[in-house]
Design a protein around this nucleic acid. Sequence first.
RNA 1: GUCCCCAUCGUCUAGUCAGGUCCAGGACACCGGCCUUUCACGCCGGCAACACCGGUUCAAAUCCGGUUGGGGACGCCA
Length: 493
Amino acid sequence: MTKPVRVRFPPSPTGYLHIGGARTALFNWLFARKHGGSMILRIEDTDAERSSESSITGIVEGLKWLGIDWDEGPYFQSEFGNEHRTAAQQLLANGHAYRCFCTKEELDAKRDAALAAKTKVGYDGACRNLSEADLSARQAAGQPSVIRFKVPERTGTLGYDDVILGRIETNYQELDDFVIVRSNGAPLYLLCNVVDDIRDRITHVIRGQDHKDNTIRQLLLYEALAAELPTFAHMPLTLDPKRAKISKRSHGEIVAVQFYRDHGFLPWAFNNYLVLLGWSPGDDQEFFSRSELIDAFSLERISKAPAIFNYHKNDPKFFTDPKAIAINEHYLRTMPVDELAPLVQAELVAENIWRQSYEHEDKAWFHHTIDLIRSRFHTVKDFIGAGRAYFSDDFVVDAKPLNKNILKYPDLENWLPALADEFTRLADFSLTETERVTRQFADSVQVKPGVIINGVRTVVTGQLAGPSLFDILITIGRDKVIQRLRNTPRLYQ
RNA sequence: GUCCCCAUCGUCUAGUCAGGUCCAGGACACCGGCCUUUCACGCCGGCAACACCGGUUCAAAUCCGGUUGGGGACGCCA
């Protein structure tokens, strides 16, 4: 019987949840769900200077929006300071660590010198073998010190089997003694992280490849702490089109999960996009329901090579990775309308154009309208943008159709109100009747039907494109159609 | 500079571990066509890649070596 799977997502609250973090959370979550294990959210806030409350809120909200839930936590690393310090003292006591009195300035100078001389950069072990007398003298003198881990004097290599990358090994010679406790007594990430993972009984550490070198050193910590090693899986990083690591600092909002929420992405569609960045099922399937994805997911099928988040700044057509938009569009037009309706409702409510009747007597109309217009939309924001005229009289007539379909034909100023009169007289405001009258009207004024049809579409919806005009008319309804047609002259002012 | 990792269409990727079925498959994007009152959707078709060099082999995208390129790490950050 194997141990139940336990994974964790441990963000440091120093900024919003970005694409890379969300993807790491998603992969951990999928793995936990697939194996009936537990997902633990642990906020790594030991760097008090950089951690912020708003960042924690942002991360939690981001995960909730994505639908990535957790079974334990959020735990806060800062609440386990005692455990971290105890572990450090234990390592000090049993000879796995030692006090180092080198000052930051000395170390910086040595590192700069090494970098300049283009030789190996690393701690030289100056304090590794301080005599007892020296040690107590310095401590008695109140000289500040950090605690360093003492890398064992061994030959050969240190390594582990990564589920994604395979065997990873590093020569002991490459490892230098690393700091585990700051001079102010605060334990550092490398140690805290291991102590927490041991306490939380983490079985699988799934994180980015930027942690690969940390893992090697943490292996020594597990050993010194006499703890069992978890399984490691280092995911490929997400890079920008210039192949640089994405970050809030250099990329801004476009990499924030919040950006996608605020731009009308469907949470599941975004997950579906993210999972394809570095993972594939092995066949041609690209769209997955939640359960299908959990079922199909496996760490072994994660790619080794980094994936590019393919957005282009100031692209007039694609405001983010075209694939992300394509996946969103797919869900937008194929998902059950009754699942989409609440999301559209939220947008309408936010715009103050929501009507209670859409939930009751006009529910069928509301759903029908969503279904009628969604195939042209990219995000749910389009329902209050391009689709606004279906829900409100307060909509803008776009400049392009205004010029192309209205101003270009001055006669429409009179024709469209006249057509409105025709509609008034119609016994049956139906698909066939509105079409018949419209074509007849075009014939009577001797223009191609398209001129009238496109003119009406522009006046009634404000848009250059849309569904079949007669579907639009009967959906928006006779009264509003007539009113908008009669208002045509104002477009010429 | 040192160490580690990676390398298939513009992008995400399948195929690599078990060499032949791959003159390399799918998706996005792009181009063309059909449909059409517009624009989409949908459908049909097209463009487009095994980084390079050498080796092993009857046979290499696949195995081995090297080169080049890219990334990550090298903190009293996480």
